[in-house]
């Protein structure tokens, strides 16, 4: 599915990256531990997280993640937004909780890591 679909499913607001909503997302991970995200080798994925510091964007940049969605309506500070803009990583924020966000996306057909590995 594309990022635009995810935005609808999660009732999310786009913080930055309106022009990147056509990006294809094949897999997602929900995680608040950046080292776990870094060990999750799935380029082109969506990260759902409750953390909003700039290192979340850095982590996404290093691991080639395609987009980040903050949960529970969290909005990052300007420095995080600026970094995301510079690195072309779209940021979204959803009012839903982590559990609900993951549940909705999975129900709509977005894969997790193990399912994705079986496919490829």
């Amino acid at each position: 599915m594309i990022l635009k679909d995810i935005q609808k499913i999660l009732e999310a607001e786009v913080i930055v990256g309106d022009d990147l909503l056509g990006e294809d997302i094949t897999i997602a991970c929900g995680c608040d531990l950046m080292s776990d995200v870094l060990s999750f080798f799935a380029p082109g994925s969506l990260l759902l997280t409750g953390l909003i510091n700039p290192q979340v964007v850095r982590t996404a940049e290093m691991a080639d993640l395609r987009a980040i969605c903050f949960i529970r309506g969290k909005k990052p500070a300007q420095e995080t937004i600026d970094l995301a803009e510079a690195k072309n990583i779209p940021l979204l924020t959803t009012p839903l909780s982590m559990f609900e966000s993951c549940g909705r996306l999975h129900r709509e057909g977005l894969s997790g890591y193990s399912e994705y590995m079986k496919k490829v």
């Binding site: 531990l33 950046m34 080292s35 776990d36 953390l51 510091n53 982590t59």
Partner: peptide, 15 residues
């Protein structure tokens, strides 16, 4: 609290 320091860093590097 910032999402680091869980003792996984060197492990990731090793990987």
């Amino acid at each position: 609290n910032l999402g680091f320091g869980a003792g996984m860093g060197l492990n990731n590097i090793l990987k």
